[in-house]
Nucleic acid binder design. Structure first.
Lengths: 105, 105
DNA sequence: ATAATACTTAAGGACATGCTTAACTATCAG
DNA sequence: CTGATAGTTAAGCATGTCCTTAAGTATTAT
């Protein structure tokens, strides 16, 4: 996975509106208007957020008739999780090595 | 945990330079100049990234003499991880319920 | 056919971000 | 004391982000 994908992923999650959309979509699919509903924001704004989520790979959409349905793409969430997990693990390993070193001396 | 903290956290991680700094610091503490070393970037730029990491709670620093030493703050990493984990879990629960529903019918 | 619905496209504006260079301060080494 | 080192402060600039309104298209309902 290239770094710029992580850029997009974390950038997408760095906005409270978009995180709320992700939370909503984790409960099940929704149309654009349904996604808009909790926000005091114009529809174009919502669609722009949606575009950011799609480009991050977090959401997929498909249009049927005049309504667009949005779905979460949990693999993307997992990639972000994995990067964080990896860093934490490295950190804990480092701590363990330090602990061993202290015991030896 | 307030949302704007997650904003800062994810925003801080949305930049490849800053993620590289986090990766470096997960291996152990470093001075500002050591952090700068891999990058073709001015020192002020590095310090600005560092400030973003500090405000996100990802890094703490302390100055001794003329050198500033930077350390990772793994709790912040874990908070981001937790949010992601929670969303994934909700999603998986949702899937399970859906599976049960399909078996019933 | 008409009107309402569900988006979509385009343009623009206020503010944030990620850099730069230049000039500065504080500390340590010789 | 002098100079090198480590970092800081300030200003400025190009570009990106997040929103808006206005005007459009395509689909569905009456």
């Amino acid at each position: 996975m290239l770094n710029y994908q992580l850029d997009r992923l974390f950038h997408a999650l760095a906005d409270a509106t978009r995180r709320a959309m992700v939370e909503r979509l984790c409960q099940g699919p929704a149309t654009v208007s349904e996604l808009k509903e909790p926000f005091a924001m114009s529809l174009p704004a919502v669609v722009q957020h949606l575009k950011v989520l799609e480009e991050a790979g977090l959401v997929t959409t498909s249009k049927q008739g005049r309504t667009r349905t949005c779905q979460i793409e949990p693999r993307a969430l997992r990639e972000a999780e994995r990067w964080l997990q990896h860093q934490r693990t490295e950190w804990e390993r480092k701590l363990d090595r330090l602990g061993e070193l202290l015991e030896e001396t």
